[in-house]
């Protein structure tokens, strides 16, 4: 046990604690929006920060993703072969640019990952309508860098996992009960900065483009 720790805790515990009015603390923010309204708000927020949002369904989402890849002129697409989406794309590989799979530790192919991947495709755990936000949990199949390092991030969001607020998502999905992953992430648009004279610029360190396919 470090001396610093003991000293700090000793100083803190020596203090007579104030009584805090907690009546306001627990109120949970959520909105009673129907699905159409959640989709409308999500799309509006995402587009306001220059993300692309494409509406698709179970029957045609593959076409939508293929078209996006074509329009962006992608030479390759990085994805997990094990997700529902990854499997379907793999089965239709001929309709897509060269597929790359995130199968090794990043150290084994860092150079390629950093400089040769055109786009990464991920699933999402859900979305938030109020702020136009994707929820991603890192996993062995879909590691953190899949949505971070490539210049384009394509994300697939099932609309029945679209919540009104972050608070609602945390509660409804039982984050606490499940236990958090190494990295839980909210993404609300492409990477951006206004650090140069308050002029918005995109793609500072993360993806320059964020493409959301609603299914």
């Amino acid at each position: 046990m470090s001396k610093a720790r003991a000293n700090i805790l000793q100083r803190l515990t020596a203090v007579e604690r104030p009584v805090v009015d907690l009546s306001a603390r627990e109120s949970l923010s959520r909105f009673d929006w129907d699905k159409a309204e959640r989709i409308r708000r999500f799309t509006e927020r995402m587009q306001a920060v220059r993300a692309e949002v494409h509406q698709a369904d179970r029957a045609n989402w593959l076409d939508t993703v293929a078209t996006i890849c074509q329009q962006k002129g992608l030479n390759n697409l990085l994805l997990s072969p094990t997700t529902e989406w990854g499997q379907a794309i793999t089965q239709n590989a001929e309709r897509f640019p060269t597929l790359k799979y995130y199968e090794r530790s990043i150290e084994d192919w860092k150079q390629e990952m950093f400089y040769e991947v055109d786009a990464g495709l991920t699933s999402t755990l859900g979305g938030i309508a109020e702020t136009g936000t994707l929820i991603l949990w890192s996993s062995p199949d879909e590691p953190r860098t899949l949505s971070l390092v490539p210049p384009i991030h394509i994300a697939i969001l099932e609309t029945d996992k679209l919540y009104s607020t972050f608070a609602e998502a945390v509660q409804e999905q039982g984050w606490l009960e499940q236990g958090l992953p190494t990295n839980a992430l909210l993404i609300s648009g492409p990477s951006r900065s206004a650090d140069i004279a308050q002029v918005l610029a995109y793609g500072v360190h993360g993806p320059k483009e964020l493409v959301v396919v609603l299914v």
Binding site: G132, P181, T182, A184, S188
Partner: peptide, 23 residues
């Protein structure tokens, strides 16, 4: 900054696990 939310909200609960590929 008057943004409804920042682009990223990053919640880190630990280092890379044995079966994870990055971090």
């Amino acid at each position: 900054t008057g943004q409804p939310i920042t682009t990223y909200f990053n919640m880190i609960s630990g280092p890379r696990k044995p079966d994870e590929k990055d971090g």
